[in-house]
Design a protein around this nucleic acid. Structure first.
Length: 334
DNA sequence: AATACTGCCAACCGCGCCACA
DNA sequence: ATGTGGCGCGGTTGGCAGTAT
């Protein structure tokens, strides 16, 4: 049984916002605030829109101090370093880039930054547009078990090859690919570095054995933040939520700091199969990661793009496929 | 000039989490 | 302890604009 829809879809307008709608929404929120209830807001504001849609429009476009346009090199570095560290946690990354929204950053990463980092795919080897647009998670989910597509085969093999729980902490993998994308005999390599505690942006990785089938990776099991309010607790297989520092400006201790900190990986055996089917994003296969102090206050983001590229190539964050072209050029699909 | 392809971005969707009754 | 509603997040899609063929 599915979840009840958040609004009456039939009576709700979809698609691009008109200037009139923008004005209405802006005016209402500036006058009354959101009232802590986005669902009721459109009706009060006289908009035929879903509350979620209003929220998105406000947060991503109408709210004051939103920055549009080109990302600076500094912003690139922040995004890359945080991505290498915490993966596709766009909302957290966004808190470190005042004026940028998670949606902006996500789009920027997907459309440009990845290419900037990893180079472009030669025209002759490009995946057709419709496939390029489909993520691997959808490929994985939509493929039939009896006739897996090459890409899903790769994913499947990779997961099955990682029998060591440590290996499963990482949803990322590398694929050594011979010549063409359709070669179904592609071998899957779970990078050796993945299996070992590794040096990273965050310093030496450490592994902790915890009760109830939990293991934890990361730096210090607990670390202090600038306001001394750190927490890093585990409770019966469920990590306790921690403070990420909130929206830009909301956390005085961290406002504008372009730093990242220690983070930890948690594994919850009980959730693995469910999550495995749910998605292939960071933490999809039962693992999740959490900053141990939420304030990213340990390591300065002074890495060059090359170093970051290296880190992203060898670490955990996403389901990229790297393969070498005939020219020996390493290119990435995702 | 017409068509196909690609890049980009705004918006949507579904799910997990949390607060509260 | 449980159910429900709302929020927030990440993934995905749709469509327009620019570029290549």
């Amino acid at each position: 049984m599915g979840r009840a829809p958040c609004c009456d879809k039939a009576n709700v307008k979809k698609g691009p916002w008109s200037p009139e709608e923008d004005a209405k929404l802006k005016e209402y929120i500036e006058k009354h605030g959101t009232g802590g209830n986005w669902i009721a807001l459109p009706q009060k504001a006289g908009l035929r829109r879903c509350g979620k849609s209003c929220r998105l429009r406000w947060l991503n476009y109408l709210r004051p101090n939103i920055k549009h346009g080109e990302f600076s090199d500094d912003e690139d570095r922040v995004i890359c370093a945080l991505f290498a560290s915490i993966g596709s946690r766009w909302s957290i990354i966004a808190t470190h880039l005042p004026g940028r929204t998670d949606n902006d950053i996500k789009n920027y990463w997907n459309t440009r930054l990845k290419k900037k980092l990893f180079g472009t795919v030669p025209q002759s080897q490009r995946i057709p547009h419709h496939i390029h647009h489909a993520s691997f998670s959808s490929l994985l989910q939509s493929s039939s078990p009896s006739s897996p597509s090459p890409s899903s085969t790769i994913l499947h093999n990779c997961r099955n090859n990682t029998s060591h729980p440590t290996a499963r902490s990482f949803s990322g993998f590398e694929v050594s690919y011979s010549s063409s994308f359709s070669n179904s005999s592609a071998s899957c390599i779970t990078a050796a570095s993945v299996l070992q505690p590794q040096e990273s942006l965050l310093g030496p990785m450490q592994q902790y054995q915890l009760k109830d089938g939990l293991q934890m990776f990361g730096g210090e099991a607990s670390s202090s933040s600038s306001d001394g309010s750190c927490s890093n607790q585990i409770n019966q297989g469920k990590e306790l939520e921690h403070e990420y520092g909130g929206a830009p400006g909301s956390n005085g201790a961290n406002n504008g700091d372009q730093q990242i900190g220690m983070h930890s990986y948690f594994y919850n055996e009980a959730n693995e199969s469910q999550k495995l089917m749910a998605s292939n994003g960071g933490g999809a296969d039962g693992w999740s990661e959490k900053s141990s102090n939420g304030l990213f206050g340990e390591t300065p983001l002074d890495y060059g793009l090359e170093e970051i590229k290296q880190l992203i190539s060898t670490s955990s964050c996403n389901s990229f496929i790297f393969y070498e072209s005939k020219a020996g050029e390493k290119v990435m699909y995702y």
